[in-house]
Computed example of a mutant assay.
Amino acid sequence: MSVPSAKVPGVEYHYIITLQWSEGDEHRITLTSSWEGVYTLYVPGTTRQEAYLALVERTRKHFNVPEGGDSCTLFFALEPMALAGPRLEPAGALEAGP
């Protein structure tokens, strides 16, 4: 009798990334855009570099950076979603009455 495999819970990280790239032939323009979101890792042992490379690729696709075009990362942050310490109630939550 086989036991159903349990889904591996993912670990969530918040990321912010800013890329800069150029577009156009005759009249080149330089574009700079930032993007943020949640990146969930399901594979234990994933390195920060692997996450970074995946997020650069995801961001390039999001902003339609031309294939084969160069982009430069101006800023990158990857932090755990969960903040350390006790979970705090939203302001006013303890004051609400019946």
Rank of each mutant, 00 (worst) to 15 (best):
R87T: 15
I29K: 04
V11H: 09
V65S: 01
T59L: 03
L19G: 06
P86L: 11
Y52E: 08
E12S: 10
Q49V: 05
E36V: 01
L19W: 09
V3I: 11
L88G: 06
L88M: 15
E26Y: 03
A84E: 15
P9H: 04
A54L: 09
V3G: 04
Y13L: 05
V56H: 04
L83V: 12
E95Y: 14
G37T: 02
E79M: 12
P9V: 06
R28C: 00
S2R: 09
E36A: 06
A91Y: 13
T18G: 02
Q20C: 11
Y39P: 01
Y42E: 03
L78E: 08
N64I: 01
T59Q: 03
P66M: 02
T40Q: 05
P4S: 09
E23W: 00
A96L: 15
V11G: 01
E26W: 03
G97N: 13
I29H: 02
T59G: 02
E67Y: 10
S2M: 04
T30V: 12
H14R: 10
P80G: 08
K7Q: 11
H27R: 00
P80N: 10
N64D: 13
L31V: 03
Q49E: 10
K61S: 09
S33D: 07
C72K: 11
T47R: 05
T18Q: 09
G85I: 07
P9Q: 08
G97H: 15
T32C: 04
I29C: 01
A51Q: 04
G45I: 07
E89H: 11
R48V: 08
D25K: 00
L94K: 13
Y42D: 00
H27I: 00
L83S: 14
R48Y: 09
T18N: 03
G92W: 13
H27G: 00
L53W: 07
H14V: 11
S22K: 12
E12D: 15
P86H: 11
M1K: 07
T73S: 07
A54C: 06
P86R: 10
